[in-house]
């Protein structure tokens, strides 16, 4: 039934880029892959979605309860992925928040981390939390937030770490050393949660 990855976030966070790198990895690994992406209109800050299906699948979209891994790049967007988590599937949540204007003036209307954690717990999932923005900033490459997530995804999806680094080198033209540091940082955090 393949390996299904469901990625959500908002425009500008590199969700689609992340999906493309994972798809490139799957091809490099000699597997079949399908990629669906949904980006809103040109503007930044709109919801984005990327679905990657690796292996023998024929539909273009991941059915409910069928994602082996759910990744949310933005905290509140994660609730949109709830329906897709496969029983026993993994969930990685980034702590980053992107506020639309009405939330800026009323931040209390934005769901907190505990609420989200609670919600996923109720479905039986145990989310892994990452503060990808903080990590990426520490490496002084704040835009590598998605690459930090890629590190965690690689571990949780049991992708080959070295091969993923090779793919990363091919797909990320600039600042590759820093990107690899971001990737390894994400990988290690995910490792830490597996003990």
């Amino acid at each position: 039934m393949g390996n299904n990855l469901y990625l959500v976030g908002v425009g500008g966070q590199g969700v689609v880029r992340l999906g493309q790198i994972i798809a490139a990895y799957a091809i490099e690994d000699g597997q079949k892959v399908r990629l669906f992406k949904k980006v809103g209109m040109a503007q930044r800050g709109g919801p984005t979605l990327c679905e990657i299906r690796i292996g023998e699948v024929s539909g273009s979209r991941i059915p409910p309860l069928s994602a082996d891994l759910v990744v949310a790049m933005e905290l509140a967007e994660s609730v949109k992925a709830l329906e897709y988590v496969k029983p026993g599937g993994n969930v990685i949540l980034n702590k980053s928040r992107v506020y639309p204007i009405h939330i800026m003036t009323h931040p209390e209307k934005y769901p907190g981390e505990e609420v989200i954690e609670d919600l996923f717990q109720k479905t039986g999932a145990k989310p892994i939390w990452i503060d990808a923005k903080k990590i990426a900033s520490e490496i002084s490459l704040p835009i590598a937030e998605n690459i930090v997530m890629l590190g965690a995804i690689t571990l949780l999806s049991s992708f080959d770490k070295e091969l993923m680094i090779e793919v990363l080198k091919k797909n990320v033209p600039r600042q590759i050393e820093k990107n690899i540091s971001a990737f390894l940082a994400g990988y290690e955090i995910a490792e830490g949660t597996q003990i």
């Binding site: 908002v10 309860l65 967007e77 609730v79 949109k80 709830l82 329906e83 934005y110 919600l119």
Partner: peptide, 22 residues
């Protein structure tokens, strides 16, 4: 499974942050 999930999804619905296009 999906039926069991329904009340949780409904709860989640209230948490969705609208992101109007501008």
């Amino acid at each position: 499974d999906l039926e069991e999930l329904m009340p949780i999804l409904e709860e989640a619905q209230d948490l969705i942050v609208a992101r109007p296009t501008s």
